[in-house]
Design a binder for these strands. Structure first.
Lengths: 165, 165
DNA sequence: ATATCTGCAAATGTTTTGCACTTTT
DNA sequence: AAAAGTGCAAAACATTTGCAGATAT
């Protein structure tokens, strides 16, 4: 199943908004488009910068507010990669996946494992819970790739400490 | 392997500090003790409150600074349960585990799965990475337990939204 | 018309930091 | 003495929110 088109995303968002008595606006349309055009995992600020560069007039507050709605509508999904900023990615019509995050180069690589999902579900059931969501991030290093150019996807990285100390 | 005793923790911390040219102080000793006595997963503020109630004079800043060192020394481990505050738990001589976090009652239940760990490692290797750390949190609900009293471990919960929208 | 949006600036809340003073070594 | 630690208050910083004016139904 390929990722959703802009039209599909706009339709889905429109339906979502309508169902909650909310309104489709110029800014929200612009934000849906920009979010889908964004490659990889982006922050609210990334999205805002992009729009400012395009000459669009949308405030950062509106970006945050829209991202919240887009996540509730399952058009995007938010992730915490322990670097102090929430990342988003388009998720409409995309399959679930988890992430490897490289601490050397900042690359975010998606992975899927039906087997892990199954075991996860099993653990939760064994305890009488129901699963609502999960976070499965693998923080990795890629020193072995140094110099190959293969891992220099996102050189920038924040200094903020993760939850591991 | 049972959890570490206070003496073991103090020795480990002392060795860690010494190796880095840092010093054991009264506050740090107090914090090690309090952290080990704390049951379950606690925040920096929990720890601070506890000490204030005991009549100890330790500032919140010192608590944060000590927790950082204790985590680096692997005496405690920090976790992000997506509620806006970092939690810590004693980890010296304890086995690795991941967590289920109940969104209804706030309970944190530990789980272990050698199978999941193995698959995780496999995924990382397949991509040529080396694993540095991982976060595997299962956010669950326990409505089925309502009224049984079994799940009301930690009633308090924060309103802050997690990374999923 | 009326409820919802938006932008701006100010607030929030956890964690970090600068600095003057204490405590270790 | 010299280096490291502490408390306090202020700073940081991503995200949220109050409010007055703008926009959608």
């Amino acid at each position: 199943m390929p990722a959703a088109t802009l039209e599909e995303a706009l339709d889905a968002f429109d339906a979502f908004l309508r169902a909650r008595g909310l309104r489709m606006t110029g800014q929200r349309r612009t934000l849906v488009r920009a979010a889908l055009e964004q490659r990889g995992h982006f922050t609210a600020e990334d999205l805002h910068h992009r729009l400012v560069n395009e000459g669009e007039h949308v405030s950062l507050a509106t970006v945050y507010r829209a991202l919240l709605l887009l996540a509730e509508a399952s058009i995007v999904e938010g992730h915490d990669f322990a670097d102090g900023q929430r990342r988003f990615e388009p998720m409409l019509k995309r399959e679930h996946h988890d992430h490897m995050v490289c601490r050397d180069c900042g690359a975010v690589v998606e992975f899927q494992s039906a087997e892990i999902e199954r075991l996860q579900e099993q653990v939760v059931k064994k305890h009488g819970f129901q699963i609502a969501a999960h976070v499965h991030n693998l923080y990795v290093t890629c020193d072995a790739w140094r110099g190959t150019g293969r891992c220099d996807l996102r050189a920038k990285q924040r200094g903020r400490r993760g939850p591991h100390g």
